[in-house]
Nucleic acid binder design. Sequence first.
DNA 1: ACCAATTTGTCCGTATGTATG
DNA 2: TCATACATACGGACAAATTGG
Lengths: 257, 257
Amino acid sequence: MTSEADRFERIQPAPAYQQVAEAIEQEILSGRLQPGDPLGTEADLVRQFQVNRSTVREGIRLLEQGGLIRRGQGRRLHVSLPRYNRLATRVSRALVLHQVTFRELWEASMHLETATVESAAARASDADIAELEASVARMAAATSAEAHAEIDSDFHALVARVSKNRVLQLAREPAGLLFTPTLTMILNSVPQAGPRNLEAHQHIVEACKARDVVVARDWMRRHITDWRRGFEIAGKSLDDPVERTFAGHLGLGSAYS
Amino acid sequence: MTSEADRFERIQPAPAYQQVAEAIEQEILSGRLQPGDPLGTEADLVRQFQVNRSTVREGIRLLEQGGLIRRGQGRRLHVSLPRYNRLATRVSRALVLHQVTFRELWEASMHLETATVESAAARASDADIAELEASVARMAAATSAEAHAEIDSDFHALVARVSKNRVLQLAREPAGLLFTPTLTMILNSVPQAGPRNLEAHQHIVEACKARDVVVARDWMRRHITDWRRGFEIAGKSLDDPVERTFAGHLGLGSAYS
DNA sequence: ACCAATTTGTCCGTATGTATG
DNA sequence: TCATACATACGGACAAATTGG
């Protein structure tokens, strides 16, 4: 205890392994190290940083987790572009841990998906349309609720790619990942959900084909609204937190690979 | 080379340090380990996993970077809720590395910020209003462009908190972080930008006070539009990628702390 | 297709500074 | 105050995998 309020916090030197990570990250963010560039061997880094190999390895783990470096062929280290999927799963997990409610999820998705489909309808190329139609065909042929839900998820991710806006694409992905498992549950307990979903997707693709932004947005709105209705018909409350159970669904395999 | 296309990828057992990280992460995501719970000492983990300390440490680094565990008082390990800021900075960095354009950033922010302010206007409590007004007051008193831009950024983050929607809050944050440094530049080269910004913030707060969702949204739209106009007046092109320079601004200090 | 050098993953032991009781 | 426990960091070692002739 001091007689007066402390003015300064204690000065703590960052651990060596953090400094290693920060130094490498700086090189990457500054552009001096570009995606694809090799990082050198662990022994190289040991020599440059003058720290122990264990220390270097701990620093590398930090960057590896962040997706800034990866182990490629031969497990050699090289600079990498962080993957969207990876970041999105992280964010999704955080949302689950923070116990966000389905209402928050639904509201946000309503905004994000309608915004995304607007851009998609405005910018869809012929190849994009073909991909969207293929997705609709796959959904029409889906036999299980799981498959249907998976295709639905892919469709929305595809729409986001077609929007040609990577900021929106990355913004909507975490909510999209959390949406999917619930859709499986809805499909299993609400018979009319499947056909309605398919119909919405069809109309969205048609609208994209016609470059009709307004119709595309409206059908997406109905689509998201349908999810909510199905959710409530299935007897669940929008004010429940998104279950932890779903977090298991968020590919552990891809987490650290 | 094989005579036919390879059907299977090679089966690789995950390194021990990854398995350590995944095992701990599973306990957290399943809820068996809750935020705040101690994780035990490194020696404990060595005993449980039957691997070397170095291996345990590498695994811990992965989780530490992901924000799932932290070192608290006495550097003891305990489970933690991933911070929004942290996740957002990671995503922002990824956007920069992927060289997203200012146009993508602007378009996404237009959607995200208007959506957020709608919810904020609908749900702002008296305490929220007071905070918003305090932010406006601080901006009115700001002397430098940096301070003004910083307060602007905080204001938008505050609006997102007031929206009471954490999904939206997290979705808009990465774009918000990238917006700020550019605003500083605009303020320095476009004299009318400062007053217009302040005016927009004032109107947004007034609309929140009046629970007027439509007006709040409209002023936010103008506000974001102003940014774009200022950006172009300052002589920059919307189709340029967001500069790497800005990534340095994204607190390296907080990255691994 | 074989071999030698390199590199990673993992392990062991130890020293040091710091935090806790 | 002192002793203990713990995190950080270091040095050295070895097997398996990978590389590059």
